Computed example of a mutant assay.
Amino acid sequence: MDIMNGSYAQTHFPCKLWDAGEKGLTLSAFEWEEDRKTLIYGQVDYMYGEALYKPEMKEGNPIRLYSLDEITEIFCKLGLRICNSFADFSGKPSSDNDIQLMVYSIRE
C-alpha cells in the first residue's frame, strides 16, 4: 500500500510551493486540518509572459491522511500485520519526515 504520510503533513503543512514548468509557474498550497487529519490542496497556474495576479486558490477535495500508527491499528482490525514500512521504492525505512509511506503487510 502506498499512501501520503499523515505524520509528515502534521509537521510540514501548511506550506506553499512554486514549480517552474515548460509553459509557466504553478503555485501549490497545502493546508492541514489537524482535527480532521485532512489535507486541503489547491493550485494556481501562471503562464509565462502574462501579468501576475493575486492568486485565488481553487480547492480540490479534502484528502484524509493516515499515520503509520493509524494504518497499523486499521490493518490489525482487518487481520493484517504490517511487516515493514518504507519511504520510497529504494527500501529506505519510513519516518515522519517522509511524505510517502509504503506499507508491506501479511494476513495473519
Rank of each mutant, 00 (worst) to 15 (best):
G42H: 01
G42Q: 00
G42A: 04
Q43M: 13
Q43I: 04
Q43V: 01
V44D: 01
V44N: 03
V44R: 13
D45M: 06
D45Y: 11
Y46F: 15
Y46V: 00
Y46I: 00
M47D: 12
M47V: 08
Y48T: 01
Y48K: 07
Y48L: 09
Y48G: 04
Y48F: 15
G49C: 02
G49D: 13
G49W: 06
G49Y: 06
G49R: 10
E50K: 10
E50L: 05
E50P: 01
A51T: 05
A51L: 12
L52K: 10
L52R: 12
L52S: 07
L52A: 12
K54L: 12
K54C: 10
K54W: 09
P55V: 04
P55M: 07
E56F: 07
E56P: 01
E56N: 07
M57E: 01
K58A: 12
K58R: 11
K58I: 12
E59G: 04
G60N: 07
G60I: 02
G60F: 01
G60W: 00
N61G: 02
N61Y: 02
N61E: 10
N61F: 03
P62F: 09
P62V: 01
P62S: 12
I63Q: 06
I63M: 10
I63Y: 06
R64W: 02
R64F: 06
R64N: 05
L65V: 15
L65H: 03
Y66D: 03
Y66M: 11
S67E: 00
S67T: 14
S67Y: 04
L68T: 01
L68H: 11
L68V: 13
L68W: 09
L68Q: 09
D69R: 14
D69T: 14
D69F: 09
E70V: 06
E70K: 06
I71T: 12
E73G: 03
E73M: 04
E73S: 14
E73K: 12
E73V: 08
E73R: 13
E73L: 04
I74W: 00
I74K: 14
I74R: 05
F75M: 13
C76E: 14
C76P: 04
C76R: 15
C76A: 15
K77V: 01
K77Q: 13
K77L: 13
K77P: 03
K77E: 14
L78I: 02
L78W: 08
G79K: 09
G79F: 00
G79Y: 02
G79Q: 08
R81S: 13
R81L: 12
R81D: 13
R81H: 12
R81Y: 08
I82D: 00
I82G: 01
I82P: 00
C83D: 15
C83H: 06
C83I: 09
C83P: 01
N84K: 13
N84R: 15
N84C: 07
N84A: 14
N84G: 06
N84V: 08
S85A: 15
S85V: 05
F86C: 06
F86N: 03
F86D: 03
F86P: 07
A87W: 02
A87G: 13
A87P: 11
D88W: 04
D88Y: 05
F89T: 04
F89C: 09
F89N: 07
F89V: 02
F89Y: 10
F89M: 08
F89L: 09
S90E: 12
S90A: 10
G91Q: 04
G91I: 11
G91T: 05
P93G: 08
P93D: 11
S94R: 03
S94E: 11
S95E: 14
S95Q: 11
